[in-house]
Design a protein around this nucleic acid. Structure first.
Length: 461
RNA sequence: GGAGAGGUGUCCGAGUGGUUGAAGGAGCUAGUCUCGAAAACUAGUAGCGGGCUUGUCCUGCUCGUGAGUUCGAAUCUCACCCUCUCCGCCA
């Protein structure tokens, strides 16, 4: 959520931001609703102030008279009733006015709030302008020794590559047919070394972040209330993307939603809290199952492990002071972690600075990491495996996650998040890059301890 | 799932219709005292919002949430959410 005060002071910034992101918002309406809301509020509060004052001046007297009225003899009642009517006239008039104003406010406020919640965080000043992912800017790429994606796989390795679909089938790692039988399209069963490899990758990434990067490992809910989804900025824009469990309809207290990323659980932890500034930054990592409906992606990446409804992801978040330079430093540090993991797994990758048009509602700066997938497209393609976002105070403002700075001032914290590893998607480059001519797949060194020392996955296992 | 108890400020806790944003205590901050500390004493100690005359200014809201009764609600009514205890069931 943006700061409505900042919008009043400098609406241009938000209008330009939304336009750069390619998001259409009726800003004129927002301004009109905001003005209307404030003018109603002013009028309403003036009445309330009068009510409070009258309550102090005549309230007690009214109470006493009402008490007397009950006990009074018939002939004394007339006088009391006259005085009561006189005393009550002013408060009753105010009450009527307040009722009208409250109704007006109830008419305006929900629309004002709903619209405000859809205004996107403006992109950072140095994010390149662009309409969509085609205009993302490559920052750098890295290749392991002996493999250069700019040359054909065959030139690199001396044989034609198999796609990951072929590999997992031949090696018995994934059973798509039975996954679909049980749960429908985009579902799968991990099997044998497929499951072990999946778990190894996750465990390696989590341990790496905890042991080598000082992040606190957390286990968080993946079924959450709507407030968590709204607070983290996934709703309302991404409502269609989330599985929705309608508990209300079957008599439960409230509906729940399956989270599409561990970010929701990690950021929700401190919602509505005030963090002592000494405990910042918070550095959390989690491994969680992620659920995505993939609404609107029909027909896209339908085969294989690329786009699926359920997967697991090790996710890192940082909650830091409201300081742009600090948030940029953490962004770099988090990306460094990702690069260390990918390099240790010997996977070729590149970093892309996303342009304004490729940013979501909530981020002001995003860098995607793409791994080389030899079996993707005609002759291999880079495919997105990671995404690192800086959110400014957008998310913490929605979550009401604040800290008191050293001057005792309340501040909304800044938030960042970044994939450490997402599997099974990461298995695509992992299997395809490390495949051998005989159809086996070599296991990168860091994963072996998590696979009982296995160095090579072969069909027989 | 059944039965019961309860949700008040940073924390504990009082408060069952009237000036209560809220007694009392703890904690925290500052001061006095002290060579220093402790103790004691004194004072201070919420958040969010609106206004303009932007001020050591005025003002509204907040006692789980929402609606209602009332001139007036932390206090009464209704619905909901949450927590805890016991029983049942269970990975």
């Amino acid at each position: 959520m943006i700061d409505i005060k900042a919008f009043r002071e400098n609406p241009e910034r938000f209008i330009r931001g939304a336009s750069d992101k390619g998001i259409t918002i009726d800003f004129a309406r927002l301004r009109a609703l905001d003005d209307e809301r404030r003018s109603i509020l002013t009028a309403l509060e003036a009445r309330r102030a009068s009510q409070n004052q009258l309550g102090k001046e005549t309230g007690l007297r009214i109470g006493k008279l009402k008490g007397q009225l009950k006990a009074a003899a018939a002939e004394a009642r007339g006088a009391i009733e006259v005085e009561l009517a006189a005393l009550e006239a002013a408060p009753l008039k105010l009450k009527a006015e307040v009722t009208v104003l409250e109704a007006e406010l109830a008419n305006v406020e929900p629309a004002w709030h709903a619209l405000l919640m859809t205004v996107p965080q403006p992109p950072a000043h140095d994010v390149p302008k662009g309409a969509g992912s085609e205009q993302n800017v490559e920052i750098r790429r890295w290749n392991p020794a002996g493999f250069d994606p700019s040359r054909p796989f065959k030139t690199n390795r001396g044989f034609a590559p198999k796609s990951h679909q072929e590999l997992v089938k031949a090696l018995g790692l994934v059973d798509f047919e039975r996954g679909v039988k049980m749960s429908g399209t985009r579902h799968y069963v991990l099997s044998g070394m497929g499951m072990r490899l999946h778990q190894a990758v996750l465990r390696y990434a989590l341990d790496f972040m905890a042991d080598r990067r000082g992040f606190r490992p957390m286990g968080v809910p993946v079924i959450v209330r709507e407030e968590c989804m709204v607070g983290t900025g996934f709703f309302p824009a991404g409502r269609e993307q989330a599985y929705h469990i309608e508990e209300l309809r079957r008599g439960g207290g409230h509906d729940i939603f399956l989270t599409g990323t561990g970010e929701v659980g990690l950021m929700g932890i401190h919602a509505n809290e005030v963090i002592p500034h000494e405990s910042l930054p918070l550095k959390y990592v989690t491994s969680s199952t992620c659920f995505r409906r993939e609404a609107g992606a029909a027909g896209k990446d339908t085969a294989g492990l690329y786009r699926i409804h359920q997967f697991d992801k090790v996710e890192q978040v940082v909650v830091c002071r409201a300081d742009d330079a600090e948030s940029r430093r953490w962004h770099a540090t988090m990306l460094e972690s990702v690069e260390m993991v990918l390099q240790s797994l010997e996977l070729p990758y590149r970093l892309l600075q996303c342009c304004t048009g490729d940013l979501g509602v909530k981020n002001e700066d995003m860098i995607d990491v793409e791994c080389w997938m030899p079996g993707r497209g005609e002759n291999g393609e880079y495919g997105e495996t990671h995404s690192a976002s800086r959110l400014g105070d957008f998310q913490c403002r929605r979550l009401n996650l604040r800290y008191k700075d050293e001057h005792g001032k309340m501040q909304f914290a800044y938030a960042l998040n970044n994939t450490v590893i997402a599997s099974p998607r990461i298995l695509i480059p992992l299997l395809e890059i490390h495949q051998n001519e005989d159809g086996s797949v070599s296991v990168p060194e860091p994963l072996r301890t998590h696979l009982g020392g296995v160095e090579k996955i072969e069909a027989s296992r």
